[in-house]
Design a protein around this nucleic acid. Sequence first.
DNA 1: GGAATAGTGTCTCTGAGACAGTATAGT
DNA 2: ACTATACTGTCTCAGAGACACTATTCC
Lengths: 250, 250
Amino acid sequence: MTRRSALPATPAYDPHAFPPFAVTVDMVVLTIADGRLQVVLVERGAPPFEGSWALPGGFVHVDESLDAAAARELTEETGVRAAKHLDQFGAYGDPDRDPRMRVVSVAYLAILPEIGALAAASDARNAELVAVDKLLRRRPARQLAFDHRAILRDAVEVARTKLETTSVATAFVDREFTLTDLRVVYETIWGETLDAGNFRRKVLSTPGFVTPTGYRAQPGPEGGKPPDLYRAGRTRLAPLDPPMRRTGRR
Amino acid sequence: MTRRSALPATPAYDPHAFPPFAVTVDMVVLTIADGRLQVVLVERGAPPFEGSWALPGGFVHVDESLDAAAARELTEETGVRAAKHLDQFGAYGDPDRDPRMRVVSVAYLAILPEIGALAAASDARNAELVAVDKLLRRRPARQLAFDHRAILRDAVEVARTKLETTSVATAFVDREFTLTDLRVVYETIWGETLDAGNFRRKVLSTPGFVTPTGYRAQPGPEGGKPPDLYRAGRTRLAPLDPPMRRTGRR
DNA sequence: GGAATAGTGTCTCTGAGACAGTATAGT
DNA sequence: ACTATACTGTCTCAGAGACACTATTCC
């Protein structure tokens, strides 16, 4: 049995002393577009799973940290600026998850207000925003490569929980937003409707969640009172205490 | 740049096609002994960090899943029976975390009611239970090998949060326990005192948390009313809704 | 004015916290 | 009796939820 302590105490790489793994990062980049939760996918341009869709990601370089690899891959593969808050939420390493070799993938969650032009990277034929519910329902519109369906499902659950316990929802909206914008984020990701008045009280009574700008937005095309504009509070990940409750009401 | 899609679509291992990593699992095995939160450590019997203390762990085998490796290492290194609930909580992969080679370690949390005889495994000189606060305070009693101090700190925070949101506390106590036993678990891990009456109401009003046995324990050496005995509820990880609140009171 | 959206006020109910009071053991 | 521990009852307060009401815009 190969054990850590059986290895020579040298920085030199001895390929026969331990089982060699490939280590990758996979990015779950979530955003809200057209009123739905969407995720960035790339169409693979090479085997395995050539032509099918997958989460963006790639190999960790020899000299970079996991977090750095995640930030790099996000920029490289989607053309999106590196987000400040990349959240590592799991490692996936089943022996057969990649037909070529033994791969352990570290999964990261990124939450963005909007995705700019999606530039397909070198090894991706294409890059698209796809509605998450189309991918996770019982009969998915697309089969994802590898175990990316499970990774995506876990990521969505992490996002749902983070909405409960932190002020991360402000990462889904533009720099200036109305409280209705923010409430729609919760409603979209949780899949339930929230009382506008109660939501308002909860957000405004949480220190550091939002800060008023003093300005108002234009009313919508169907009229209505012009809503107040806010910005994200000082700390993007302020803990909500007590947390925002998810009731399960539709 | 080496990318996943640039690799040949073959299961064969080509050591030049991707940066080779070693993948390990590290186990944070927590228990409560002598009224304190304690963790299982092993004294390393080989370089690097020979003679210093570390979390038990080791290389993932080529053909086993991460979870299986964690369960195997736990049994092998500590002689402890494989716990049902091994909780993966993070991957640690800084380039310089192991002086020998590039290692990514997947960290697991195990919670046990008591640790039997600690049998030092082949590559460990020794195995011991050590109080967690002695390791995490500003001037630690022992320096841990690698980045195991950071891993331990993260694990403790995960355990604290799991006490809030799940009924995992029953994993710290014996099969039959009193509600005072259970409350002491919270008080020990959170480092604060809880009102016995309110704690009782909260636990008993949570479906699936505990089930009464109908029996009573003997009173303590200083007398008192004999306390009712309970067992863990049906689901060891029942979600607490609303969660148990951690107030920060001492 | 009517419709639509934003925002406020208020009532109720649940649950946490504080803490007094009761129960049952040992000494 | 006294003490120690276990358990119960009760009061208060904070916060969530429901929902009516007001405010400000467009048509």
